[in-house]
C-alpha cells in the first residue's frame, strides 16, 4: 500500500471524526438535560403526601436529592411499589422494594381531629405541609379531609393527642376501586 492511500484513508477518517464530533457536540449543547427539568419529572412521580418519611422535608426536596444522586429511589412508603417502578423507569435503574427503615406502605388514611378534646392551641396548623387544617388560636380546629394527604405530621405537635388517623370516608380520594 502506498503512502498516498494511507494518507487519504487517514484524512477521510479524520474528516468523518471531525464532522461527527462537531455534530455530537452541537447536539449535546442543544439537548443538554436541564437539571431542573429532571427534578420536575421526578417530583411528578412522587405522591405529594409531603410526609417527610424519606427524611427530606417534602417531596420536592426528595426529588432534588434523587436528581443529585444523594438519595436512592426506595425511600417513599406512601408511593410504594408503583412509585419505585415509575422512578426506576424514568431513571433507568433497577426497581427495588421500599426500604422499611423509612416506613411501610399502607392504605391511605386521613387525619381526624376529636373536636371535643381539641384545645385550639394552633400548633398543628404550621405542621401541616398542605394547609389541610383550618382553625385559629383558642378555636376548635378541623381537618379538610379532601386536602389531607395522611402524612401524620400533625400528630406529634398536638399536646393533647386529639388527632387520629382514620380510613377515608367513601367518596373521598384514595378509596378502593368501586
Amino acid at each position: 500500500m502506498n503512502a498516498t492511500a494511507i494518507l487519504a484513508a487517514t484524512g477521510a477518517v479524520a474528516a468523518i471524526a471531525a464532522v461527527l464530533g462537531g455534530v455530537l457536540g452541537w447536539v449535546a449543547t442543544r439537548l443538554r438535560s436541564d437539571p431542573d427539568a429532571l427534578v420536575e419529572r421526578i417530583d411528578a412521580l412522587l405522591p405529594q403526601t409531603q410526609c417527610a418519611q424519606c427524611r427530606y422535608p417534602g417531596c420536592r426536596p426528595y426529588a432534588e436529592a434523587i436528581a443529585k444522586g444523594e438519595a436512592d429511589i426506595d425511600r417513599c412508603p406512601p408511593g410504594g411499589e408503583t412509585t419505585v417502578h415509575a422512578l426506576a423507569a424514568l431513571l433507568d435503574r433497577e426497581p427495588r422494594p421500599v426500604d422499611p427503615q423509612y416506613g411501610i406502605t399502607r392504605a391511605p388514611r386521613v387525619a381526624l381531629i376529636d373536636e371535643d378534646r381539641c384545645i385550639g392551641c394552633a400548633l398543628c396548623l404550621p405542621a401541616c405541609p398542605v394547609d389541610a387544617i383550618v382553625g385559629a388560636p383558642r378555636l376548635m380546629h378541623t381537618v379538610i379531609a379532601a386536602h389531607c394527604t395522611g402524612c401524620d405530621l400533625c400528630l406529634a405537635p398536638c399536646p393533647v393527642d386529639c388527632i387520629s388517623m382514620v380510613a377515608p370516608a367513601d367518596g373521598q380520594p384514595g378509596r378502593a376501586a368501586a
Binding site: 405529594q48 417531596c59 420536592r60 398542605v130 386536602h147 380520594p173 384514595g174 376501586a177
Partner: peptide, 19 residues
C-alpha cells in the same frame, strides 16, 4: 381512579408550595 390520584397529588403539591 389513577386520574383522581394524580389530580390530588397535583393539588397537594400546589398547597405544599404555597405553604
Amino acid at each position: 381512579l389513577a386520574d383522581l390520584e394524580r389530580r390530588r397529588a397535583r393539588e397537594a403539591k400546589a398547597r405544599y408550595e404555597r405553604h
